[in-house]
Amino acid sequence: MSIYRARVKEFEDALKEDEIQLKYLHELCFNGIPDGYSFRSLCWKILLGYLGHKRLTWEETLSRKRSLYRQFIEDLVIPPGIAATNGENGCLNDHPLSEGPESAWNTFFNDNEFLLQIDKDVRRLCPDISFFQQPTEFPCDIVANSKGERRLHQRVVPSILSSANVERKGLGVTKQINLITKRSFESYSAMEEGQEAHWEIVQRILFLYAKLNPGQGYVQGMNEIVGPIYYVMASDPDIETRKHAEADSFFCFTALMSEIRDFFIKTLDDTEGGIKFVMTKLSNMVKQKDPEVFERLRHQELHPQYYSFRWLTLLLSQEFPLPDVVRIWDSVFSDEHRFDFLIRICCAMILIQRDLILENDFASNVKLLQNYPPIDINIVLSHAVSLK
């Protein structure tokens, strides 16, 4: 039996148990989940806490959560005018120009402010692959039945864009949308009526997350977190898994964000769970493992926030090709201490480049670390394991 086939057998045996042995499953997934099967989508659901360790609970959990997600769409995505024509309460006497706090139309227009940024971000998600531009097999039937009024991208009129600021609640750079009269996308186009591209589904997931988490809302970079999760669910070999990829991705993303949400909230940067604290841990690890590299970066005043802020906040999703990101997340999600291994991966990335770092000037090192060179991801992961 080949090593690969033996690995597949290990996963098959582990996942068919009535009660999943979580510690053993974590050990299996840490070393990489085999491609070509439905293992990864199922394992991620378990590792992220969406599914429990008892198989008997899975069917009920999935049915309940998927039904709940559908209700979220009905309640939170539909424009007030559509709801009113459908005879729902609370909208018949509401006026689009109303500015009252209880006005559904006022909420609708306020929602469009952050939807504008979501729309911009998801249209350029993972541009190195065509997946997110392709149509899904399972466009939302709620969207199709309303003749498109509920397709979120249609709220953001492509030809007109007023000025707006996106508040930085945790991500490093605040971006401002400038006042322009014509919006031209060098990015993905929406599908014709009756179809949906995968990026349109990611847009709806992020919109609903922002609506259901008003204290946090949408922050740039969240699209890079949900993208790989949705990719795994929507490209699963099992048709039933693909059919419910949107709802399952939403709850997996929500579970993951509950663990890393402090990264996205600026006021928590200095707390133990904040991004500054995590960057300090990385810097201390580099100092411990390679004092010479640490001193070189310190002497050049190349602070961790110049490069590792994005690495850590976005879980390396922008540093490597998507298949490598998925492999990294197998290990990160399986790590007993969750994000300790992420810090070791980042440390390994620095130490692997030690010769260049010691030779380069400041500008060259900034370029090196902000645009990490292509590398076999297994080399990085092996080095990270050796740092424990």
Rank of each mutant, 00 (worst) to 15 (best):
R344F: 02
K147A: 11
E149C: 06
K182R: 08
V156K: 10
K147I: 08
L314Y: 01
N165G: 15
P135L: 03
I160R: 02
S258F: 02
Y306W: 08
C140R: 05
L369I: 08
L381C: 08
P304S: 06
R354M: 05
T61P: 08
E359W: 06
Y188M: 01
E224R: 13
S308H: 01
L22Q: 12
R310A: 10
I239F: 10
D236K: 11
F207K: 00
R40I: 07
C347F: 08
V157L: 11
V202Q: 00
R242C: 03
T313I: 10
M1S: 10
K287E: 13
Q216D: 06
C43M: 12
K289S: 12
F109L: 03
V157P: 04
R64M: 12
A384W: 01
L369C: 06
G227Q: 10
R168F: 09
E192G: 11
P228I: 00
C346E: 07
A14H: 09
N165L: 15
E102Q: 01
N86A: 15
E88P: 05
N360Y: 15
G221I: 07
V122Q: 03
C91V: 08
G194E: 07
I379N: 10
L152D: 06
Y372N: 03
I357A: 03
I82W: 04
L179C: 03
Q300H: 15
T254Y: 04
I201W: 01
R151L: 15
E246S: 04
Y307H: 07
S159Y: 11
L92D: 11
R40F: 00
L297S: 03
F132A: 02
N223A: 12
F253A: 00
G52P: 03
E88N: 09
G81W: 00
I260K: 05
H153Y: 15
P79R: 11
P373G: 09
Q318F: 13
R64F: 13
G32Q: 06
L116Q: 13
D330S: 05
Q195P: 04
R55A: 07
V332S: 01
I345E: 00
I160A: 01
Q216F: 15
W311K: 09
R344T: 04
E102R: 06
V332G: 02
Q195L: 13
V325E: 02
Y209F: 11
L115V: 06
F207A: 00
V226M: 04
L342V: 08
L312R: 05
R183V: 14
Q216I: 15
V143M: 02
L171K: 10
N178H: 15
A348K: 04
K266N: 11
I205T: 01
V219H: 03
L256A: 10
Y4C: 06
M257Q: 08
L356T: 15
G194M: 08
W44A: 04
V77Y: 02
N360D: 11
